[in-house]
Each structure stands twice: as C-alpha cells, then as structure tokens.
C-alpha cells in the first residue's frame, strides 16, 4: 500500500509541476492565479497521501491548514492586485 500512496503522491506532484506552465503562460493574471489555486488543492491531497504512507497523523493537520488558507492568497489577488491593474491590461 505504501508504494501506491507514494506513487500517487509523486504523480500529483508531477501534475502540479505541469500546471506551472499556465503560470508562465498566462495570458491574464487570473489564469496565473488559478494555477496557484490548483496547487493548493493538489498539495492537500499530496500531504494527506504522505500522512497515510508514513503513518504519521500530524501531517493531516498540515493539510488542514492548507485547506483553511487555500482562499487567502486568491482573495487578496481578487480584492487588491487584480482590482488595481484595471486600466492597463486586459490582454496581458
């Protein structure tokens, strides 16, 4: 079972790294931020799998913190950063 948990965790890390392409590519700021949001969800799953693989329950608390704070950076983006760049870029 441990091998399965670890391989899925590795696989999730791979999909996460692939998602970075969207951060680099954009085109809008929102697209970049979305990828970061994806990172949050994937990281939660990844941490939960590692907790199971190493039979180390405290890691679930790390996942809990990830889940609780998944929204903070994205909300800051919507309320502050994206609101501020109103005039200049729609395309970029």
């Amino acid at each position: 079972m441990e091998i399965l948990y670890l391989s899925i965790a590795l696989f999730l890390l791979l999909t996460l790294v692939a998602g970075l392409w969207r951060v680099l590519q954009g085109p809008t700021s929102a697209d970049r931020m979305l990828a970061a949001q994806l990172f949050g969800t994937t990281a939660v799953a990844c941490v939960l799998l590692l907790a199971q693989a190493f039979e180390y329950p405290p890691l679930r608390d790390v996942a809990l913190i990830f889940a609780l704070l998944a929204a903070v950076a994205a909300v800051a983006f919507i309320r502050r950063a994206w609101a501020a760049e109103e005039q200049n870029d729609v395309s970029d």
Binding site: I65, V72, N88
Partner: peptide
C-alpha cells in the same frame, strides 16, 4: 503552510496593488 503560502502571498499582492494603483501604469 500558513505563512509562506498564505500570508506572504497576500502581503505581496496587496503591496503590488498599491504600487500599481498610483498612476495605473505598472505594466507599461
């Protein structure tokens, strides 16, 4: 998880917003 991924990001994004909002031509 709480600071590096959450708070620092919010701080940086908020500062960037204020940096850009003064004359709105940050990107240019």
């Amino acid at each position: 998880a709480s600071i590096g991924a959450g708070l620092t990001g919010a701080l940086l994004l908020s500062a960037l917003a204020r940096l850009g909002s003064k004359n709105g031509s940050r990107a240019i």
